[in-house]
Design a protein around this nucleic acid. Structure first.
Lengths: 361, 361
DNA sequence: CCGTACCCAGAAAGCGTTTTCCCGAACGGT
DNA sequence: ACCGTTCGGGAAAACGCTTTCTGGGTACGG
């Protein structure tokens, strides 16, 4: 009773099912439903009206065959692309993790897929990943905490980003970027660090030390700059040797703080430009029997969730990390309203906790 | 002096450049270099020998035009796909972050792109993301910390995974999965929890409390089961009400521990099945003036990096999280050697730190 | 010196969709 | 009852690439 065509089809399906190598395509769905390719496509996308009974048949066939559209073919034909690229330094950094939360949530809300790349703090890798993301025709590219003060890097980055933007790609960054004309969520690093400096001055501190990150990163240089300048405004100078540069990691903070501990004349207050570095510093102080805040006050920047749970809890400049993630993804997904780039500034708020106190007399 | 064709080309390029809508394709590169499409492709992929001068011309043209291959077209034509999907519960969970580090590093080493999806602890979303990843023709799908004890979930998950695997997709999980025939990295949750139980018994504890995660998750049920069974083996029973269920989060741990604190007769030792929950518990104990380990000993599971820095530092069952990430990605990328699924077990090691001590007399 | 073999470049056939274009049928208006 | 619309479905082109197939040159051996 089955038609020859049907018989052939089922035999094929049987063999393919057993063997494995076979991807069911729209063509198969259409044949199974006894309609044309075009109709099947229209049903599945709801593009235009299709007679009810035909729609039913197509839907049933698709479910039967467990049909999944080939996103590559869709992207190629339709030139839409439901995916965005996100580039960060290090996925295991709590700073990024907190931001990523907002990023992922917003992405999910918009039904887009996130392609994630981790540079492991290598600027060259960052450029390389942007190229990959460009090849994937990502609808947008997010640069989280990038931003190097480096002419060469800037040039090669622009070489990638320029053609990408020219062909409709959107770029949003979360950090200060000099040479790039892109949308940005900009934490007020200078202002936050300055506010923290004033708070520490108010506490009575005059001897400061700073643990800073790689000088080439704007996040590090802005926070350091803001802190130093605010101090200078009050007539307080940080002697050379009291500003130690280290990677943006716990280990970096540990090493830098250890160096500070060895100093002849120790500062009474230490500013780590990153909470993660502050965590390392806290450990270094503990290991060297330096009490916090008894011997030295310690402050960080970011307010990553865990610092509330440290003992002592960490004084820091709080950034709304989750919201920042939301906003940078939002910026990337929103239609390019204006020709010029949008910048959303986000303020940091000094949160005084147990790790800071007036200096010992 | 310019040829008509060239003139036309440059005019077009100029207009497109100004307007924006334009993607340079292989065809353009080929024309610019004065070779055929096929030759250009061969040069760019190094597929076969091409005369040196032609190769030069193609390479120059590609660089000139800032050509980027369209990954969708490549995937469609070649049916390779340099991307893998990773599904997790929550990107901001330090447990996942630590694993992700290994995952991303391995991915980078193999030159594959990672598509990341976060389910926000919603099983339905997990299935939905697998479907998306299937549509993207990901070369492999990684399920991190999935594994529900739920017939319905299992069925719909299999409905997605089965056709995916049948068409050559590889699936690797990091957790126990009953119904799925997939490669797995399997932390020995039962054994680790049992070892921890014995260590606590050795310390002299007899009154226990447990903060556990959602019962449906195998990670929670295995760790709870291992702990309870080991205790039972020593003739120690946990009274009802001393096992509190809460989400796998800091907040969950906080809430569950608060509940425990209100009990008439408090346990002398509390096991949180997750370090993150233990962190919440620590905060709850602090807020209720319960000293750790003075009044109650506290132990966790996972050894996420931060627990070393807590005060008191947390006793826990250490898992090589980074290596686990490496291995699960490695499993997914390795060629399917055998027909049967591979399982790599990884052991947990009890690490005694400052949060546990013999019970007060 | 001619034939055979080999190597490299070009033409063209897909890959799985979307979408445009076109045609047949059904419907309503006069 | 006839013509003009409208509406829904099918054929086919296009998306940008890889890869097979084919043909024309060159080098070499007989």
């Amino acid at each position: 009773m089955t038609e020859p065509g049907d018989a052939h089809r089922s035999v094929t399906a049987g063999r393919e099912g057993a063997r494995g190598r076979a991807n069911v395509k729209l063509q198969d769905v259409a044949e199974e439903a006894g309609v044309s390719l075009a109709t099947a496509s229209r049903v599945l996308n709801g593009t235009s009206q299709v007679r009810a009974d035909l729609r039913e048949r197509v839907l049933a066939a698709a479910a039967d065959l467990s049909y999944t559209p080939n996103a590559h073919a869709q992207a190629l034909a339709g030139s839409s692309s439901k995916s965005v690229g996100v580039v960060c330094h290090d996925v295991s950094d709590p700073y990024f993790a907190a931001i990523a939360d907002g990023v992922m949530r917003t992405a999910a809300d918009h039904g887009v897929l996130v392609m994630l790349a981790s540079t492991f703090h290598d600027p060259a890798r960052e450029v390389q990943y942007v190229a990959m993301l460009r090849a994937q025709r990502a609808r947008a590219i997010l640069l989280i905490g990038s931003g190097y003060e480096d002419r060469d890097w800037e040039r090669s980055m622009c070489a990638e980003l320029d053609p990408y933007q020219r062909t409709g790609g959107r770029v949003a960054v979360l950090s200060r970027h000099r040479g790039l004309r892109v949308d940005a969520v900009l934490p007020q690093n200078r202002e936050g660090a300055a506010a923290l400096a004033r708070a520490m001055l108010d506490l009575g501190h005059r001897d400061f030390g700073v643990l800073t990150g790689p000088r080439a990163l704007t996040t590090a240089s802005d926070r350091l700059g803001g802190f130093v300048d605010a101090l200078a405004g009050a007539g307080v100078r940080i002697p050379p040797g009291r500003i130690v540069e280290a990677p943006f990691t716990r280990a970096g903070g540990y090493a830098a703080a250890t160096e500070l501990v060895r100093l002849q004349h120790r500062p009474t207050c230490v500013f780590a430009v990153t909470d993660l570095m502050a965590i390392g510093a806290l450990a270094a102080f503990r290991d060297n029997a330096v009490s916090v805040p008894g011997d030295v006050s310690l402050a960080g920047f970011d307010d990553i969730p865990i610092v509330r749970d440290l003992t002592p809890s960490l004084t820091t400049v709080a950034l709304p990390l989750d919201a920042m993630g939301e906003r940078v993804m939002g910026l990337a997904l929103r239609e390019p309203a204006a020709r010029r780039s949008r910048v959303e500034r986000v303020a940091g708020e000094v949160v005084l906790r147990a790790s800071t106190a007036p200096p010992a007399a």
